[in-house]
Write a protein that binds this DNA or RNA. Structure first.
Lengths: 145, 145
DNA sequence: TCCATCTACATAGCATGCTATCCTCATATA
DNA sequence: TATATGAGGATAGCATGCTATGTAGATGGA
């Protein structure tokens, strides 16, 4: 039974991710946003008029997950969708004024959560951790099963 | 808009946690286990006869989450529950033989996922990352909102 | 032109997680 | 002892994510 969960990278990562999500949720809920909506907005704030497929690629979630997130964002008045001019299967996603107005406060909220999390780390530690986490992401991606 | 998601600890942690969960799921699904069930078994394999409240404390999930996970584990024949001898509100959770038989293969599956993730890191990097992640967990826990 | 195949999305079904409630039993206190 | 408060669980409602399917439009040959 040489499996100590507190020394398991997967276990600890899961715990940390849930804590990040809880804190982010608490800070952006007053803005009317949920975490996955915020993540999607991060991409759209860089430029809207994207298709669902493009968002799916850039945010590394499954197509079905993105479809549901976009449906909730439309329901909540964060996006509008228009027919794709060249492809009748696709739609383009556009930000509403409401979504544009949330960019600064939402980014500030996310930034403050990151700052809180990093409060106990030394200067270069954060960059080092990010580098190693990205290395793990590379090792795990495109290797399902 | 100085918010680069690939440099955001929360964003990267979320991505990595989902990858861990996907790989773990792929490897333990053949055993009839889901990730949260495996996590709960990790605690019960160390000693069963625990209450739901004790499991909730040790695994850092909400009470309602644990209630649902235990309901699915009972449905799947992984646990049995008996009345608490001193407290009529509580029940004790016991492993079935089936759950006991899964300890080695399930732990092996989780171990192999961790190994895959860590493949690109140097010797001491994993311990260092774990240390920093635990520091972030400490900074975020018990500070809801 | 026709058909096989692919692609873009939608939907169904399920597991996790969380917050908010509610119920029951336990306990401390007036 | 009567009552207020607390603790253990269950349940409802919702957001995320994933896999598996289904549908309609796009495309590349034969």
């Amino acid at each position: 039974m040489p499996f100590e969960k507190n020394a398991s990278m997967g276990f600890v990562t899961n715990r940390l991710a849930r804590l990040f999500a809880q804190h982010l949720h608490a800070r952006i809920a007053p803005l009317g946003l949920a975490p996955a909506q915020f993540m999607t907005l991060l991409e759209l704030w860089e430029g809207d008029g994207l298709t669902q497929a493009e968002l799916t690629d850039r945010l590394d979630v499954e197509q079905a997950t993105m479809a549901n997130t976009l449906a909730r964002m439309k329901r909540d008045g964060l996006i509008e969708r228009t027919p794709h001019p060249q492809d009748r299967r696709a739609q383009l996603v556009w930000l509403t004024d409401k979504a544009r107005s949330l960019e600064q406060p939402a980014k500030q909220a996310a930034h403050s959560v990151n700052q809180l999390a990093l409060a106990g780390l030394e200067g270069g530690d954060a960059a080092q951790v990010l580098g190693h986490m990205n290395a793990m992401i590379e090792s795990l991606r495109d290797k399902p099963g």
